[in-house]
Every structure is written in structure tokens, then in C-alpha cells.
Design a protein around this nucleic acid. Sequence first.
DNA 1: TGTCCAAA
Length: 805
Amino acid sequence: MNEALETYIKGHPIVTIFRNEENLYTVLRIKVEETNIEFKEKEIVVIGYFPHVYEEETYIFYGKFQEHPKYGRQFNVTHVRKDIPKTKQGIIQYLSSDLFKGIGKKTAESIVDLLGENAISRILENPSLLDTIPKLSADKAKTIYETLVEHQGLEKIMIGLNELGFGAALAMRIFQVYKDETLEIIQSNPYRLVEDVEGIGFSRADELGSKLGIQGNHPDRIKAACLYKLDADCMQEGHCYLEKSEFVFSVKQMLESTQPIEIPLEDIEVELLKLEEEGKVVSKEDRVYLASIFYSEKGLVNNIKRILDQKEFAESFPESEFLLALGELEDRLGIEYAPSQREAIQTALSSPMLILTGGPGTGKTTVIKGIVELYAELHGCSLDPKDYKKDEVFPFVLAAPTGRAAKRMTESTGLPAVTIHRLLGWNGSNTFDFNEENPIEGKIIILDEMSMVDIWLAHNLFKAIPDHVQVILVGDEDQLPSVGPGQVLKDLLAADLIPTVRLKEIYRQESGSTIIQLAHSIKNGKLPEDLKKPQRDRSFISCSTSQIPEVVKQVVGHAVNKGYTSKDIQVLAPMYRGPAGIDQLNKILQGIFNGKNDSDKKRRELKFGDVVYRVGDKVLQLVNQPEKNVFNGDIGEVVSIFFAKETEDKTDQLIVSFEGTEITYTRQDLSQITLAYCCSIHKSQGSEFPVVILPMVRGYYRMLRRNLLYTAITRAKDKLILCGEEESFQIAVNQTDVNFRNTTLTERLLKKMVPIKEQNQEVEITNDALAISYEEALMNTDPMIGMGDITPYDFMEEQEKVNEG
DNA sequence: TGTCCAAA
């Protein structure tokens, strides 16, 4: 990074507005002394990750301006550097400041007189120079040296890290973790970086290790390899555990791939055992878990049991009262709930927990609406938060894993909904304000898009759910799995211990939709025979990867001639790169929908990187802006462009309208949006479009998967145009094991909750919804879920252990 | 090879 070219603000802190000591996230107000950009304010708020800063010191903050929706203009700092005074006057002022206790102006002057303008670095190099200063006591000399070391320490560490080959950003992250001990720790065991610092992998640490002479089967090297491999495989593949023998072997390969030494398997097993003793991994039978994931699975199971064990909801109101209220609601909303939807609402209101699942268009949203309305009716409480006094708890808690899903919940229910992170009070370093000791408040908790929740978040969520609440989990198990490890919704359904209602009928499409038939067929692993035959609502165009741009161009051109606009048509693709990738298709599509022709030479456009934005462009928001009600995944349209000379702030501005909500972007914010004529299937999750154009070709080879195809197809409301090779569709349908995730959640739930059944004896369980035998439970388990060869005997053994403990 | 959350 070239600091000379970066925007900086030099100044000293006036007040610390916020500081998270755990990860050093800091919000400061500073007094501006100097900057290399046009900026006239005397003060500015800077945010970033800083070491401890002192009001007496001057710092140079490198970064860029940003507009915070609530707190206004602020400077987002990438790295900070201390300003070491260079002039005689500056050094005298510095040394005589309050920072150096007992040092006055006279002493400071004599130091600078004797040691010159680089007095500070000379003292740091050789503290005995201070002995030469007349009338300076040993005590004061010591104070000066120690204060200097303390305050210049960061500089030294940064330089040290630089010499080890770390750039500014990574160096700061390392410093955040180790603080003053940074260099000592890295010198003695560079492999600790793998564990402690995000963004440093095994190979990086191993290079460092080699330089420092740590090689071969050194325990630190092996341990780091184990932890890295376990973490990387779980995070990348979504596993909650790895098979031990395979795992140990892959670690061996990794260790041997860079050094010509054979590492015995036993050595790896020894270190793995040590890691277990240190509490970093958990090994059970032939499975190896990261400790955090192991305890997440376990904790989630305990908390689900705790919530399911609540019996108080079963008879909270008579059925007649429910039916009466339901009838009134149907009249009021002018709809009629289908039997399965009624069942869902009733179960939700009379059980501690419900899973509501079903594909797109099956009416999950309508059911959620029904649940909250009827809850309010039957419990005689208001749905308006304003009707509640300060100390009264609003009973309805609605949350979802993404900002956009939460926004949709708000739109469909009229109730406040937040992201799960916000609900739990995420504080930036993987911990939450709300937990078992400080649970969230509410009476009924509804969680949407549960398929996107990973095992770790699910655990943190459930442990913060208090007793005496009802929990409703909503989601579609066939959609893309969570980013993080686990497949919580799928596993909970497989265990079949939580009351579940599956919505199957489609209400959204007209009857006879062949798109839904196609989706069903793909969900079940088959391509229909009529895939390539034109249907009323879908068609198929055969072509290869290289033909995709031309085919998409023609199809879209045709649609535009028929009167469709860019709002109606969405092209979906699985990946960004390549000739049929999203980037390439967006360029072509922009040309069709919003191209530049001779007649509008004066058309306004703003160039940003490779992209030229024009008024009328369809764009996609990439980050959440909750205060502005715009979220990651929202699609909008560029409505106007203003050039720097026309605006008050003298910056280029681009205005985007998201269904009426207008947002202004300056150049710095433009990385928050991208062209959206074509977007990734992942990003499209949770949206629907009248017309979907879906290429599926060999060029997407690595991404061809059944749930991806299913997700893409189910985005189409009216028309679906498939293009590509039938073979690629077939490959996608067949690819299910790539998504296979090793988890033991289902198994744990069954162990914990299915009581031991005496031979041929009926199980007595008071709650009917929970009445289920092992055999039934195991039958219900999808073989894909990863139960392995579990027999009822396995459960008994574990149950006995639990009883003993 | 693609995807999430965010502090006054």
C-alpha cells in the first residue's frame, strides 16, 4: 500500500465515543490538524480498530469518508500511525506534555538541545543517552524511557511485523490479538497465528516457522496443521465433524507436502490428543469436532429439549374459541386458510414449538400472519408496540438470519422484525449480549428462513430463548444450506421430535403451473421427460457454454419486444467468472436494457471500475443499511446521477430507488452496489421474479448442484426459460452428495429425547406431539443426513451414561 | 465456487 496516495487525517483524540476492548473497535472524535484532502471541519468522528490512543498524542488516520445513516459523516480508518514530532518545537511540546510525568519544558529543551531532532528514536535505541542530560534524575530518565516505549511500542511492533512479511491490515489484526507481546509470541511459536488470527492459514505460518527453524514433526507444527485442516474443512464443506482416520491422513499429507520429511501418523494422533486435552477439539469414537461446534450441537439439543418440555400451552384455550377467532380473521382478511394452514396455526398456538416448512408459494407467510393475529386475539394483547408501556414486554419477537428476510417479515405482518444477530445483541467479537443469563424478552418467537441458520448461530439463539415462550421455526429445507457448518433445519426435521407442519399445496401460481411440477420433480431427483418441450410457462433452448451470451441476448431481446422490462426479467447464474458468468452477462444485458445509442449521447453515466452506471440501470445492494431500510440482496433502479460540480458536497452522486426508497451513493459507496440484470442464484434466494432466464451449462461445472437448480427454478413466478445442455441439468440434479454435511444433531436429539423403550411396550409420553418410537424416528431419518449405522442399542447405552451422570 | 451477520 502506498501511504503517500492515501487519504489521511492527522489529529488528536478529543473523546472516545465507543470502544470494544475485546476487538478494539473504536469510535473517536478527533480534532483535525492536517489532511491531504479538501476538508474544512475542525472535528470529525473516526471509526476503526485501534490500539489504545491518548489524547496527548497526534495520530495520522488513513482511510476514507463514509456517511453513517444515523451519525452522519465519519472517517472509516484502515490503519493508523502515530505522528512522531519531527521539529525541535514539536518534540519539546511532546516531552513536556502531561504524558511524561514530572518533565517540564526546561528538561525537554535540554534533551532536544543535546540529542537533536531525532532525540526520540535515539533514546529508544539507547536509553543510557539520557544519563548525559544534566540535572535529570535516574527516576525521571526511567519515566521518559518507559513512557516512550509504551507509546512507541506499536510502531516497533508494526515494523517488526512488516519485516516478517505482513502488510498493514494483517499486522493490525495480529496486534489486536497479541498486543504488546506480539513479536515475542510470533518468534516463539508462529503457528499460534493459525489459531488466533483470522486470515492466516497454515501455509503462511509454516513459512514463518521454517524461517525460524521449526520444522518436520515439531509439535507446534503438527497441532497447527490439525486445527487449520479441521477448521478449513468444516467451514468450507459445512461439516460439523470429520472422520478421524481420513482427517489424520489428510493432515499428514499437508505436513509432508511442503517439507521432504515423513511424519508418522502416530505423531499426529499424539498431538490431536493434546489438542483435546487443551479443549480445542473434541474427539468421539471416530469423529473429530472443533470444540465450538461440538458444544453448539450439544447445547442446541439441550435448549430444544428445555423448550419442548414446556407443557403449559397445550390447553391454553378451547378449540371452539380458536375456530371462532380463526373464522373472524378469515372474514377480516378476506381469505380462507387451507386445512394444512389451519393446522399450522393451531399447532403453533398450542405447542411450545412448531416447524413450519414448505416450498415457495405454499403460504408460509400467510400462516405467520395468521399466527400473530390469532395469538393477539386469543391472548387479548395488542399488535402495536406503541400500546405497550416502557416496562411492558412486547410479546412478539420476529427475526431472520438476513436483513432482507427480516424486512419481508415486517412487510407481511406489520410487526417489527430484526436480524438474529441484532436480536441477540451481536457485539463484534463472536459474542452476544443476550444469552442464557440474559435472555431475550417475549412470548412468541417466530424465526424465518431457518435453512440459512448454521449450528453455531442456532445454539447462540436457542440459549438466549427464555422459558415460557413459544417458538416457531419457518423455512424450506430444499433451499441452499447455511454458509456456516451444519444443516440445522434439515436435521431438526429428520429427528421428527418437534411438531411439524409441511405445507405442500401451491397457492401462488395458477393451477397447472409446470414450473412447480418441474421444481417438484427436481427436488425428487428426476428431470421430467418433457424438459425440452415448450410448455405454457416454460421453455428450453439447447446451447453450449460459449453460446450462452448470444442466446441470452436473443431471448431477452425477444422479451423486450414483447413489452417486458428489466424489472420483470431476471437472469440467474451460479458464478461470476467465465464466458457465461454473471459479469459477462451483465455487460451484455446492460447493452440491451439500457444501452447507449446515438440519440442519447448526452445520457448521464458514471464510471466506477469496470462498470458504467447509467440512469435506468437495475442494481443490486450488497450490504445492509437497516436505518435506510435497504438490505443486502435488494434490487433497485438508478434514478439520477449528479456530477461533482453540481452537488453541494462537490462529489459525484448516484441516486438509486428501491421500491420508492431513494438512496444516495457517493463514489466511496459505489462498491455497495452492482449491476443486477443477472445475479447469482445465491443472492436471488428470498426473491421472486415474473420471468426467470436460467442458463445451465458445462462452464458452471463446479457449481452444478440439485439445491442450487431447485432454488433458481423456484424464483420464477410466471415464466421460466432454461438454456444450456440437458446433460448439465442432469448433472445438477444428480449432485447431492457434494452438499453432504457430516452432522450429529439428529442423532443427539434422538438420544436425548427418545426415552428408552422396553421391548414390545408402548411408550407413554404425555405430549402427543412428541409421541414417537425409535423405529419411527429412525425411519423418518433421511439417509442423507448422516446418521450412520445407529441402532436403538446405541441410544440405550448413551441414555444409561446420562442417567449415571 | 458461492454465501451471512455488525458495535455509539
